[in-house]
């Protein structure tokens, strides 16, 4: 379509892609429709559920709110890129072991979000429930719950998610 298509380069899960995309496309739709990486889910397309969470230049982000054209040159890690070959990441293993999902639709977003969240916590970032803002937060259950609240799970697997995050961090 005239004037609508544009070209971008994305590095997704370590692999560089030169893509011709509709300028209106979200990063989520480019991943799902153009690259066939359907692990990132579309639960609301409004940034209100977190199912589309990916790591964008190393930080967790909602791919549905990111215009793909604005991410030209970015590095993206999706759920498909969390494992090291056949070896699942500690979080992925813990999610299975702790039954941290039921339908599995929010799971890729939960996993990417938890991966990014652990990194944020390791850097000492505070959250809304952190008492002393000048100290490094202790990532207890209350902290994990607050920090993972951007990922809704209608099956209600929250207890398993918190347990899995704790286990993977240990």
């Amino acid at each position: 379509m005239d004037g609508v298509d544009t070209s971008i380069t994305l590095t997704v899960n370590g692999r560089e892609h030169r893509l011709r995309i509709d300028v209106r496309s979200s990063l989520l739709d480019v991943l799902r429709e153009d690259l066939g990486l359907t692990g990132s889910k579309k639960g609301c397309d409004q940034g209100q559920c977190g199912a589309c969470t990916v790591l964008l230049d190393g930080r967790r982000a909602n791919a549905c709110l990111a215009l793909a054209v604005a991410q030209d040159g970015a590095e993206v890690t999706t759920v498909e890129g969390l494992a090291d070959g056949d070896a699942l990441s500690p979080l992925q293993r813990a999610f299975i072991e702790r039954d941290a999902f039921q339908c599995g639709y929010c799971t890729p977003g939960q996993l990417c979000s938890a991966t990014g969240m652990l990194e944020e916590a390791a850097r000492g970032w505070p959250s809304a429930v952190t008492g002393d803002l000048t100290a490094d937060p202790d990532l207890d259950e209350t902290e994990i719950r607050e920090r993972m609240s951007g990922n809704l799970c209608r099956c209600g697997a929250y207890e398993g998610i918190v347990a899995a995050v704790k286990e993977a961090r240990a």
Partner: peptide, 21 residues
């Protein structure tokens, strides 16, 4: 038992309706 499709679901391989290529 852990869910038999657990691995598919944590790796993003599990395909839902419109995700089938």
């Amino acid at each position: 038992r852990s869910r038999v499709e657990g691995r598919e679901k944590v790796t993003g391989e599990a395909r839902y309706a419109v995700e089938h290529p």
